[in-house]
């Protein structure tokens, strides 16, 4: 039988059948292999750090929602992603109390203060990491060696440092490929970098798994491929030019691409939908800025790694990128003179 009545509804009439919730859930799926590899290479330390950061983020989100008398938004998985990403960018033997504070800062200062999901100017996980980096510079640059034989049975003593106490790091720390290059001029082979045989932040070491996660999200049309493409391409081109000028002084572009947090940043952090531009050209510019700034900081800056600051800077200018290149509204004057 035919329906007699006609439903009348207001636009939008076409649904994409996709909610924030679903996209976020898929990002979590894509991140899980990275987490597994991190636990596999760094053992219980990484597991504890990532779990603590995630727990703190979700808890903070819940508490803040309750305090402002709104329905809790922890169900949309965005706080989980913030926590996971924060945990993945921390060194594996990072004290848990600092990771916990990081989770709180990420949600409260990085997201909630702007009005919650969809309003944040910066990537919340990176805001948290930037504050931690400024507050505890020693702890956040003390790296734990990967693939220790007792990694599943013992936990580094620094992890369980009492709150507000200074951590004591027991092992002579392993240098990251980038700091080894910057301060001692030692390069690491690309194969070792790609398969995560090196020391570094919990989740940045294995480039291959990160790329696979990215491909999954791009294939499901849940991530804009232009951003990672622009970041990696611009970083590759700039470091390639430097390498061809002086291969003694500058490392090869492949080393630059696979070392440090560039891959993790390009795939999972620069692509944060809220803090990146929306126009296609804008995305290319945005990604290009991140890639170039990263190489500039790595080569000429005082720090060995620059992905975090380049993404945060690009976040800050992304609304301006959009407003500069946006299309002219039909019927308006070509140039609007502002007083």
């Amino acid at each position: 039988m035919l329906k007699k009545t006609l439903d009348i509804s207001s636009s939008p009439h076409i649904y994409k059948g996709r909610s924030t919730n679903e996209i976020m859930k898929n990002v979590v799926w894509a991140l899980l292999p990275v987490v597994f590899f991190s636990v596999y290479s760094f053992g219980l330390n990484a597991l504890l750090v990532i779990a603590t950061a995630t727990f703190a983020s979700v808890l903070t989100e819940h508490v803040l929602c309750r305090l402002s008398k709104k329905e809790t938004t922890i169900g949309d998985y965005s706080a989980v992603i913030t926590g996971l990403l924060l945990g993945l960018t921390l060194p594996p033997s990072f004290p848990l109390w600092m990771a916990f504070i990081g989770g709180i800062i990420g949600i409260a200062l990085g997201k909630y203060i702007f009005g919650g999901l969809g309003y944040n100017v910066f990537n919340p996980a990176l805001v948290a990491r930037a504050v931690l980096q400024a507050a505890f510079p020693v702890a956040i640059t003390t790296w734990h060696p990967a693939f220790l034989t007792d990694r599943f049975s013992s936990i580094a003593s620094s992890v369980f440092t009492l709150p507000f106490m200074e951590p004591k790091f027991d092992v002579i720390s392993g240098a990251t490929p980038l700091s080894a290059f910057k301060f001692d001029g030692v390069t690491t082979s690309t194969a070792e970098l790609a398969f995560g045989q090196v020391s570094g932040s919990a989740g940045e070491t294995c480039a291959v798994i990160i790329i696979l996660g990215g491909i999954y999200l791009i294939a499901r049309n849940m991530m804009n491929w232009r951003i990672p493409a622009a970041v990696l391409l611009s970083a590759f081109v700039l470091s390639g030019i430097l390498y061809s000028i002086n291969s003694e002084l500058y490392p090869s572009p492949w080393f630059m691409l696979f070392s440090g947090g560039l891959m993790l940043g390009a795939v999972f952090m620069a692509t944060d939908m809220v803090s990146s531009p929306i126009t296609p050209i804008g995305l290319w510019i945005y990604g290009g800025i991140i890639g170039i700034l990263t190489i500039v900081i790595r080569v000429w800056g005082g720090l060995s790694e620059g992905v975090m600051y380049s993404i945060l800077l690009a976040n800050a200018i992304s609304p301006h990128i959009d407003s500069i290149i946006k299309n002219r509204v039909y019927g308006t004057k070509r140039k609007i003179k502002t007083a």
Partner: peptide, 10 residues
């Protein structure tokens, strides 16, 4: 053994 928050003096 108190861990100082360096960011606070920056």
């Amino acid at each position: 053994g108190f861990q100082s928050w360096i960011v606070m003096i920056l």
